[in-house]
Amino acid sequence: MRVLIVDDEKLARDRLRELLMEIGNHVIVGEGRNGNEAVERTIELNPDVILMDIRMPTMDGLEAAMHIMGMENPPSVIFTTAYDQHALDAFELNAVDYLLKPIRKDRLANALSKAHKLTLQQLQQVNEAQDEPMVRSHISVHMRGNIRLVPVKDIIYFMADSKYVTIRTAGEEHLIEDSLVNLEKEFGEKMFLRIHRNALVSTDHIKGIEKTPAGTWQVGLRDFDKKLDVSRRHVSSVRRWARR
């Protein structure tokens, strides 16, 4: 099998590499040091299976796996972890493959021989079982069969259409299939503020709120020269946020 190794610790990657060589029959196509690299290498190298650490900087393994599941014909994922009690229980419960560190050769060989594809649902259930469920650091955008990652902190607003949600960053615009309700639930009021039935705005990108001559309210944005309407229903919550 073609294997991609993802772990932020170099010696942990070395160990997997050595064990894989001893087991034989497998080709190591590449290595990654965090979730972002896992997604990039997967697109680039098209592995059959990914050995993925859970705790990694910038994007953790669980989130990376979720993004990867959105690809066409995604690889299998086997998680490696040192100690995450709640995640482990959830792995067992949802039949997600995982290996405990220090990794044993026989377990690794066994896991590779029966690695199977995950579903997004399994991963979501694992995430919900965590003490504090992970909030995505990136949104994956589908482009011609592949995905691209847009950092959540670059997003200025989400705008709902009849069927899609538009993501607006300083330089680009993308369509994703999701609902504002879900996005609002995930990112909450800390990062995004609902200003309209169809608009969720990044609080970091709000420059100010102002009243129009017509008596309605608008939100001014940083990095993007456009004003967004605040619906009458959300005026009080937006003003409450602004006063904080």
Partner: peptide
Amino acid sequence: RPHFLFNSMNIIASLTRS
């Protein structure tokens, strides 16, 4: 801190070879 313990053990297992 079990996370530190098990990760370090994994690293040590790796170092025993190299």
